[in-house]
C-alpha cells in the first residue's frame, strides 16, 4: 500500500476538497499509515460472512402517505448564503 500525491488529488477531487501542496504530502503520508494499519483486516477470513450495515436488526420503517406542513419558504431560505426571490442562488450551472 502506498498512497501517492496523485491518489490524494484524485480523492480530493471526488470529495470536492482543495488541498495545498504541503497538505497533500501530509495527507498522503497519514493516509498511507492509516490504510497500512487497516490492511490487517486482510488477515481475517470473511468467506461466507454477511456484511453488517445495521447492528440492531430493524426492518420496514414506514410513514403513511399523509401530507405534513412544510417549514415555509422563509425558514427554508433563512440560512441560505445567497438567494434570489425564493430560490437558492448558485454560480451558473452550465449543462
Amino acid at each position: 500500500m502506498s498512497i501517492t500525491v496523485a491518489d490524494v488529488e484524485h480523492v480530493a477531487r471526488l470529495a470536492r476538497l482543495e488541498l495545498g501542496a504541503d497538505e497533500k504530502k501530509l495527507f498522503a503520508g497519514q493516509m498511507d499509515a492509516i490504510l497500512g494499519y487497516v490492511e490487517k483486516l486482510k488477515e481475517l477470513n470473511t468467506d461466507g460472512v454477511r456484511p453488517t450495515s445495521h447492528a440492531i436488526p430493524v426492518e420496514n420503517a414506514f410513514r403513511e402517505d399523509l401530507v405534513c406542513p412544510s417549514i415555509g419558504v422563509d425558514k427554508a431560505l433563512d440560512n441560505a448564503p445567497l438567494k434570489s426571490g425564493t430560490y437558492f442562488s448558485v454560480p451558473k450551472v452550465i449543462e
Binding site: 401530507v67 405534513c68 412544510s70 419558504v73 437558492f88
Partner: peptide
C-alpha cells in the same frame, strides 16, 4: 403519491419555489 418518498412534504406541481420543503428534503 400525495407526499414525497422520504418526508411528508406535498408533491403538488407548480407551487412557489422552495415552499414545499422541510429539513429532510432540504
Amino acid at each position: 403519491t400525495d407526499t414525497k418518498i422520504f418526508c411528508g412534504c406535498s408533491t403538488k406541481f407548480g407551487s412557489e419555489p422552495n415552499s414545499q420543503t422541510c429539513p429532510v428534503c432540504l
